[in-house]
Design a protein around this nucleic acid. Structure first.
Lengths: 224, 224
DNA sequence: GATGATTTGTACGTATGTATA
DNA sequence: ATATACATACGTACAAATCAT
């Protein structure tokens, strides 16, 4: 059976539901009925409740007392704030990484960046997106601060549904890689201020790309 | 009975337990027995469990599957990371505040700072500490970003047990107020970079003050 | 190392508050 | 506006795992 990851049912459920939200299987605004989820996963309501509460604290779902839980509905204003926050936190991580990455970490970041150049030239959005997560993760880790990197990761997860399709935009891969290049150069060179600025600009450009996509794709029905 | 704040028992319990942790009534490392807490608050284990999970996600308590929950025990390394993270996030808020505070918000920040000067001269640590929370809260709010300000607030809460006594240090009030002055001047003048730098320095100095206190009070610091 | 005690994890039942007819 | 239906919040019971002996 599936007893693999998180040891308790609550943990496994939280992970599975989070995954479903992040991949878009559960769309924003979708109602999360406790009994339905319990039936679906073959457990009782108790671990479902605890998982929903946990996801509520991390911001992925909105729990309204006595009124049930829904997949967090992010307004355009909140989306903008999330992107600003992610940009600032990622930029901070980049600055700290420039100051405190070990030589080994720097070499690995450089190697990862080179490999992503290949993926960009090959035009493989899925592989690039996966490597991109690793790239940003390497920078979080290089900041050597678990508090900041956990927060950056949680923001990245919350924004993932909205960033998913950006790499399909024409030319986005090549531009992303070029933006990364300036970040990598600053970090490898230990130039803290430049690393901060380059990362802030990169994330801001991602936001622009996403906004372009949302403007185009939306128009279909959300509730009125 | 007491039906005052949070509507559900879980919410009230989470607030009460958090308060007890933050004020030091529940010391770090203290075991949080579900049944004992349930008896103490006159409820069943269910809302206690949910409250503990919630506090676990926010970092105030550590929940170990099948092994119970304890008040989060912060190692010296984690404490340092928390201070670095808080410094960076507060500095970011200060920079954003310098860029985007409204004239009214700037006037209020200035007035608050002036009032704190009185408290510092009067030598009232308790009142100063309370005003200090409002001061930093005003800067978070001035950043106009709920994601960042929520994170800053949660970090401040997590660090509160370790910062509590700092204002009793001789001369700390006056120094704190002088540090605030440079932050306020930069924010009011719209000088983003200076606001960032001044706030980062301020928080770093708070960390030093706390470390001095901990070193004195604890005797030993590092664990083997 | 095995056994008993304690505590957590999960299931299930009931009551109350919310939404709907 | 009242009543009805239903989902959630909470309590309670049992199972399973950890710990103490």
């Amino acid at each position: 059976m599936d007893e693999a990851p998180g040891r308790t049912r609550t943990e496994r459920l939280a992970a599975e539901i989070a995954e479903a939200i992040v991949t878009g299987t559960l769309a924003p605004g979708h109602r999360l009925d406790e009994q339905a989820l319990a039936d679906q996963y073959g457990v009782s309501r108790t671990p479902v409740r605890e998982a929903l509460r946990q996801l509520g604290t991390s911001g992925l779902v909105e729990v309204r007392p006595r009124r049930g839980a829904v997949v967090a509905q992010v307004t355009p204003e909140q989306l903008a704030e999330l992107f600003v926050a992610m940009g600032e936190v990622e930029a901070t991580c980049a600055r700290l990484a420039a100051q405190s990455m070990s030589p080994l970490e720097r070499r690995r970041l450089d190697a990862l960046h080179e490999a992503m150049g290949e993926l960009a030239r090959a035009g493989d959005p899925a592989a690039y997106a996966e490597a991109n997560t690793a790239f940003h993760g390497a920078i979080y880790a290089g900041a050597h601060n678990a508090v900041l990197s956990d927060f950056a990761l949680s923001l990245r997860r919350r924004l993932q549904p909205y960033r998913e399709a950006q790499f399909r935009q024409a030319g986005r891969l090549a531009r992303s890689h070029a933006e990364h290049a300036t970040v990598v150069a600053a970090i490898l060179g230990g130039q803290a201020a430049q690393a901060h600025a380059a990362m802030l600009r990169h994330v801001t450009l991602v936001e622009s790309a996403v906004e372009g996509l949302l403007g185009r794709e939306r128009g279909t029905g959300r509730r009125g």
